[in-house]
Every structure is written in structure tokens, then in C-alpha cells.
Design a protein around this nucleic acid. Structure first.
Lengths: 211, 211
DNA sequence: GGATTATTGTCAATGTTTTAACGAGTACAA
DNA sequence: TTGTACTCGTTAAAACATTGACAATAATCC
């Protein structure tokens, strides 16, 4: 196992990855931690330390090779893993995510979309057809998805999550406004609590006008 | 001004708020830091310390009064501020946010939606009609919005952000896959980088299967 | 080919966040 | 009314994260 790296570091990796992609697109082939620090707003020291968690990708006197570093970080993040992913809840948000997310470039492969509303059954989203929630269990048995995205009301989230865990789901990307209780261990939950994010911003606006 | 509180604490406040709401709905009137810690998965010590950043809301031997604490945190977060908010980009994601977000309960008031696509002009979303992007500047001059939500491609994000800052926008909730450069100071940016969140999760899935 | 400059990887120092410990005050029961 | 159990606010300790410093090494220039 990969000698635990702190979550602070992990949370910065996608940003590095995005930035390096940008540099590649602009034809930049090499970059130093100092230059990166100026562009990204981190300290050069932090950047070097972050990269070093995974081994020395740079070279003294030269810096980092952009495309090599990009590839390494991609590998660390697992962008080529293609984990089978299902999405539960095809409301506005669910459909936005299904169509916008570029799963393939992020290590996921969206293989199924489900909604409880029978009127949505067979409606096409992206290149998939929405299935009724009834079909989740048989679908899981046949296709063994690993990741589930929850875009459903908080009232039903916990129950569906429990069912999915029983059918082999290992990780949840949770957009429901609730905190899933890990009734089973070693399940990964990444919360995307948009409401919390908005409230944090409002706090900051409020705080900044108080002075 | 409110003697700076660390962002770690701030980011937990919405979660406390949500949880206390839930308790109120269930008719719970008092709760101790120990009980809360069991339900939320923080340590009791952290909870007491967090609340204490804003003053002593509890009482020895009793705990905290749920509705009082809920109200206090709401006040700290500014949920009653009703900051005027506009949304730029009425694609799938923009519409999902406009209709799902319950802005009023989170200190915001959505007063305008804009999109560059003329075919969307006058289409109704929530109880607002989409306006063409051309109208942003005059709208800002007349209505003085404070917060802007960016649901637009990264190519146009920086330019629109610059325009908005010139017209008095103080804070951005940024869903574009880019990092806004703060060309002007003291502008608040809350990034909702869903792609980064997804990649973090994929990393964790990957790391957990490596052992 | 040697001197100079650039830049990494790493170690130590600093700063921040979380956890633990405990005195003081309140509620509640006998 | 007294004693016991509970729980806060706060201080101190531990864990964790970031920054600064520098030796080692590679690139580049003359």
C-alpha cells in the first residue's frame, strides 16, 4: 500500500493536474517549482514537498518536465482506471452531472443511470437510457459497479446507500444534503455538499463587510 | 470585525447547522457535546472549541439548547442576509443550481439568470426569466448584485469575472473548471470544483485497493 | 572543461489544528 | 439541603501542515 499521504496533499493533486494540462496545451515543456508557485499561488517549498510524497520527479538545475509530471500525477490519481460508476437520481442535477463531468478523463466510466420516477424510464441522457430504481440490484449483480453517485433527496439517500453497499459499491459521491452513516466500514464517501459551500461563501461575504 | 476564525472551523459550521436543524425537526431540545460528537463523528473537544470561537452558548451540566444554538450559528453564517445573487450560464448545471439550491435559506436571493445563447432568452427557470449576457452590465448597474455564480466554460470565466468585479460583484461561487485570478483584491472566491472532488474520490478508491 | 547559476530533495523550524485534561459551575436526586 | 453526576470553557499537549534553509547536483555559459 502507498504509505499514507495526507489528505491536504491529495486535495491539491487535481489542481496540479489541471494546471499542468493547461501548460501542456500552451506548449510549455519544463517548469520549476518557483514558476509554478507564482502561477498557482502556493509556495515553491510546498510544491516540491507535495511532489516528493510520491518520489522525485524533478531534476536539479532544470525543474520538472511538464508532460512527465502530468502523466505521473495522472497515474497517482488513477485517471486511467475507468471505475464502473452508476448515478442514482436523474433530476436536473443528476443529468447535469451525467452530461458535464467527463468521467472518462477522471478515472470513471458511467455505465448506468437510475431514477425512481417511471416517466423518466428510457429517457436518454448522454448515451445512456435511464432505468427504473427497481433495476438497481439486478444491474449491480450483473455489472459490478464500484462507485455510485447519489443525486437523490436526503430522505432516501441512506437507505439506497445501504442497499448499494450490500451489492458491492465501494465509494459514494454524495450530493444529497445529508451525511451518510458508514454502517459498513471501509466505504469511501466524498461529499459534494453544495449547500455547505454556498453557506461558507456567504459567511465570508458577511465577515468581510463587518469591518 | 469578528477576530478571524480559522477556515477549518468555518467549513464545519454549515454541517453543524444542518445537524441541529435535523435535531429540531425531531423535537430534540437539548444536546451535549458528547452526544453531538457521537452523532457527527467529530470529537466532543473539537465541538466545544468550535462553538467557543463565537462565545459560550452552552451551560455546564446541561449542554446546549438546540434551537438557540441553531439560531446562533445561523446568525454567524448570515443565513438571513439575503445577498443579491446572479447566475451566469443557464446550461444543465446552471439550471440545476437555480432550481435546487434553496438560496433564501442560505443568505442569498437569486435575482437574475444570464446566458449567452439567444435561444434561451426569456426561458423561465424557477420564477425568473433568463436574460442575454449583453444585459449583465446594465442589470448590475440597476440592481447592484453582490454575489455571482459562474456556470460557464472556463474559456469565458476570467473575462466575465473581471467585468463583474468592475460592476461591484464582491464574491464568486465558481463552478468553472479554472482558478480565477484575483486581478482585484478583496474579492471572495468559493470554488466548487466538482471535477477535483471526483478525482479525489477516485484516488481514494485506487489507494484503498492497492493494499 | 571549469566556473557559475539554477533548482531540486530534504531537514529543521515554525505555525496551525486537533485532541486531551481538568477546574468550575449547574442540574438533579435523595 | 447536600452530594453526586454531568458537562462546559479553557489551558496544555500532541499531531499535523507549511515554510524556510541549504547541501547536492544538473544545466548552461564562457
Amino acid at each position: 500500500m502507498g504509505s499514507t499521504v495526507s489528505t491536504s496533499v491529495i486535495k491539491r493533486l487535481p489542481r496540479y493536474y489541471r494546471f499542468l494540462q493547461e501548460l501542456m496545451n500552451n506548449g510549455v515543456t519544463r517548469i520549476s517549482s518557483r514558476e509554478l508557485s507564482e502561477k498557482m499561488g502556493f509556495t515553491a517549498s510546498q510544491i516540491r514537498q507535495d511532489f516528493n510524497c510520491f518520489g522525485g520527479f524533478g531534476q536539479q538545475g532544470y525543474g520538472y518536465n511538464v508532460s512527465e509530471l502530468h502523466a505521473e500525477i495522472g497515474k497517482i490519481l488513477g485517471v486511467d482506471k475507468g471505475y464502473k460508476t452508476i448515478l442514482i437520481g436523474a433530476g436536473n442535477l443528476g443529468r447535469a452531472i451525467a452530461t458535464h463531468m467527463n468521467f472518462d478523463a477522471r478515472g470513471c466510466k458511467l455505465i448506468g443511470i437510475f431514477d425512481v420516477n417511471p416517466e423518466l424510464t428510457d429517457v436518454e441522457v448522454g448515451n445512456l437510457r435511464i432505468m427504473h430504481t427497481d433495476k438497481i440490484e439486478s444491474f449491480c449483480n450483473e455489472n459490478s459497479p464500484v462507485i455510485a453517485i447519489l443525486c437523490i433527496p436526503k430522505e432516501s439517500a441512506q437507505q439506497i446507500a445501504d442497499t448499494l453497499v450490500k451489492h458491492g459499491i465501494k465509494a459514494f459521491w454524495n450530493f444529497s444534503h445529508c451525511d451518510l452513516k458508514p454502517t459498513f466500514n471501509d466505504i469511501i464517501v466524498e461529499n459534494a455538499h453544495l449547500g455547505d459551500s454556498l453557506m461558507t461563501m456567504v459567511y465570508n461575504v458577511n465577515a468581510s463587510s463587518d469591518n
